[in-house]
């Protein structure tokens, strides 16, 4: 397909790809806003949920927070390399970001396996329903971000479509930010 003229115009001064990523994030904010808003309202109405929340693994959550924040640093460094037109370097940093996402998911699955073994499943109470749904929805975003990042890295290695390095970085920061909200709400709030 030939790229239409429309795609190359920049009336706002912002490249079309980046502009679209911001709109994607805007629509995602409302989705997570719906989940977290519902959770917070329920949590206020059900103080007894703190006994359920006490069984979450705060240390694992804290470790994952550090991992995700560090992976975001790698995404920034990838953007920096892309600005200097150093595609292969950007690709390496993107792979590092992916590694962060991968570690996050591994920790998460160990955590969940443990909890399910102790009888805390999706349907055991509404706290756990929210816990698995919110973190699961976030996890899907991590996976989607990693998959896209692998494609972007493959292109960047060949110095192609370097502007996408920044775009996927913006998305990754957003996924990171969602976790910053999820971690205290699901793990720390007692």
């Amino acid at each position: 397909m030939i790229r239409p003229v429309a795609t190359t115009r920049e009336m706002t001064g912002m490249p079309t790809g980046r502009l679209a990523v911001w709109w994607v994030i805007a629509s995602e904010i409302v989705i997570f806003g719906g989940v977290l808003g519902s959770y917070i309202m329920h949590r206020i109405g059900h103080p007894e949920w703190e006994y359920q929340a006490a069984h979450t693994n705060t240390m694992a959550g804290a470790f994952n927070t550090v991992v995700l924040l560090t992976s975001s640093l790698a995404a920034v460094l990838a953007h920096n390399a892309a600005e200097q037109k150093n595609g292969p370097k950007a690709a390496r940093f993107l792979m590092l970001t992916c590694l962060g996402g991968f570690i996050f998911l591994v920790v998460k699955s160990v955590e969940w396996t443990n909890e399910i073994h102790h009888g805390y499943t999706l349907a055991s109470s509404t706290f756990w329903s929210f816990y698995y749904m919110a973190a699961g929805l976030h996890g899907l975003h991590v996976i989607a971000g990693m998959v896209i990042m692998l494609f972007v890295a493959a292109d960047a290695r060949k110095n192609k479509e370097l502007q996408r390095v920044e775009n996927i970085g913006i998305y990754w920061h957003f996924v990171d930010l969602v976790w910053i909200f999820l971690f205290p709400l699901l793990y720390i709030a007692k």
């Binding site: 629509s27 806003g33 719906g34 808003g37 329920h42 349907a123 509404t126 329903s129 929805l137």
Partner: peptide, 27 residues
């Protein structure tokens, strides 16, 4: 967005015995 979240909750309530919308289970 909130309705997308609501749709996920409704599918869970229908099929996985969660109680997002069920007062008996704290929903």
């Amino acid at each position: 967005g909130p309705l997308v979240a609501g749709a996920v909750m409704l599918i869970f309530d229908q099929n996985f015995h969660t109680g997002f919308f069920d007062p008996v289970k704290g929903g």
